[in-house]
Design a protein around this nucleic acid. Sequence first.
DNA 1: TTGTAAGCGTTATCAC
DNA 2: GTGATAACGCTTACAA
Lengths: 391, 391
Amino acid sequence: MTIEDSTQVAVERSNSIKASKSHSSTQLTTSSSNATIYDVASRAGVSIATVSRVLNGYSQMKPTTRDLVVAAMRDLRFVPNNSARGLSSGTKMVLGMVFLHAEAIDPGLEVEDDTLLFTDAVIRGAEEEASKNGYALLLGGVGNARLTETLDRMYSNCDGVILLDRTVPDRSVPTIAKRLPTVLLAGNGKSRSAATIRVDNEEPMKQLANHLISVHGYQNIAFMAGIRTSPDSIARENSFREEVAHLGGAVEVDRLWESSYTTSGAIAAVEARLKIDRAMPQAIVCANDQSAVGVIYALEHHGFKVPQDVAVTGFDDISLSRRITPSLTTVRQPFQELGKAAVDVLIKICQGEIRGGAGSRVLPTKVIYRSSCGCTDVTESRVEKFMRGRG
Amino acid sequence: MTIEDSTQVAVERSNSIKASKSHSSTQLTTSSSNATIYDVASRAGVSIATVSRVLNGYSQMKPTTRDLVVAAMRDLRFVPNNSARGLSSGTKMVLGMVFLHAEAIDPGLEVEDDTLLFTDAVIRGAEEEASKNGYALLLGGVGNARLTETLDRMYSNCDGVILLDRTVPDRSVPTIAKRLPTVLLAGNGKSRSAATIRVDNEEPMKQLANHLISVHGYQNIAFMAGIRTSPDSIARENSFREEVAHLGGAVEVDRLWESSYTTSGAIAAVEARLKIDRAMPQAIVCANDQSAVGVIYALEHHGFKVPQDVAVTGFDDISLSRRITPSLTTVRQPFQELGKAAVDVLIKICQGEIRGGAGSRVLPTKVIYRSSCGCTDVTESRVEKFMRGRG
DNA sequence: TTGTAAGCGTTATCAC
DNA sequence: GTGATAACGCTTACAA
């Protein structure tokens, strides 16, 4: 390429630039289209490179020049086009969050209002953390068989992606992680290809086992699983069983004890169990609060008193667990913090501060002792319960 | 510009193209970077224009050519770069949803778990409808004083935006709508610059007034507002007052009756009212369920029986309203449908099918009569209540 | 029916 | 400290 060629090209681009400039300016008067850095540059009497520098907080600039540009930006209400930035720089400042639609969580069953509490809270936490760091959060709900499209949407729009538990089969994770920085939320923590953020399921379940056996003296206990393939459910059940065995108690083994994590699922499970055997265990430990509520409802319906006849515990500490009678002994899990932690780690991975596998974190949980386990119920009104339960 | 100039430019660009091609291919072997249309084109032995046509479903193509391209895309696991598409076509296939963070909804007050139920459900509905139509949903949470950044993020990333009630001051809406197709969700419906999607607040409140006065014979009634500036709260209160006046009843007027839409706010309001006057109205109609729950708690705490001494009604039909004792008479509002409708309208506006103001919609609501208004409580167990309340 | 190449609005690499 | 311009990956006239 000769100098002349180069010059020709320059002329050419100058022409298009001019065209572009006047075009934008014209449209501004009209309505929708936005000002570009060309508009800002010409108004400030500088080159687009200078405008770009201001945009990106480049430090070695003459303050007066910067002020000029900033003023022009303000006057034109300039907002940079993120598609262009993304194309040019390769970073889109957008993170993706892939989750399961209700229909996909519990196919065939009617969806309960509370089924997605977990998802909702995580999303909010994630959004807050993302926006605090200048990132936007893109939602990717996965319904029946829409996984591919959703993932593609993530690939084409995001710098990184958070996958909620069970949205993606384990074997696909490495493929995804190869394309995009990936964080797993509440998975089994066994992926070597992506960081996993999860809560401590083990410790509180051991505490609970200890409490039920040592404090209340229960011997026969059942564990109501959520979904048998769910890592959280599995972890909770295993830790609980281990500790009970360790303490010489017994946990009933029966495939009936599975709730789909839902109230109605738990009701159905208890009723199925009653058909086989009218005798109930002394305590039923549930993989989540929704199903604990179902267990309480069903027991009551069939003449059992909770906790006098059967004790019940949950996991999550959703707001209902403080409002139900008897109030629910459960494990508090920091939903929003999960979302925040996932974003935090994901951003670090995107920025190359840490490498994929190294970002895993386990967030602490806390057993909350209320009435349903047999601990004395303070006789207080619902107002008092409610006020005390906050925060 | 002469022909020669044009040719020079062509040569120049060809060079860059070649560079680009090999670059991409190299990286593919490594890991993260994706194939581009150049890679697909060269593998399929066609031009990038042809690849683009396949990508965009252009119909007048030789089927064999299309197959060739499709195969190449599959082989390379090609996913188009949406930044490039957005930059080139001006359409990003991304919609924005702007909502209030909890801290901003109720500053100074601790956040209740259920405060964001409405937001969460709307977001889910919106995401589902968006993804069904090939759009992604970008979240823009607005905390304290972060409105500008959030809006800028919407401007730079989205084709259109949904603004939830009270995220943005009324006067800013025209400015936003001028930049971006805009849909207001649950606003006052008075904006001429943007379509508004809301629920029917008027009809159910009239029905409720009728029911309380004609069926139960209540004469003295209070209305517990949510937030006094909230369009929904205002609309509900006005319709209710009108109908009560029409029927010759009386609605207590006192600024004390305001709950911030929260349970704790309602408790505080009732207690403040009790300090002034121990006599309660015969019925308290609330702007939402959360506050109705607070009213029930507070009344009970101070020795009033609901509904025998005081009847209480809500609005929303959150899941708690079926579980609380007494079960809550309320108005069912289609949360998810709101989100879906907003997206549906927004997409139509983006695609030029309808113009801004013309897209407004009012979704139907339905009064659900339960026990808290004084209607006979069917003596059923919580299981039965729960099962009946579903769907 | 397909190919060529301009253009989208940025960033970033060189020069000066 | 600032300016010129190539490059990012795609869409879309326009040509063939």
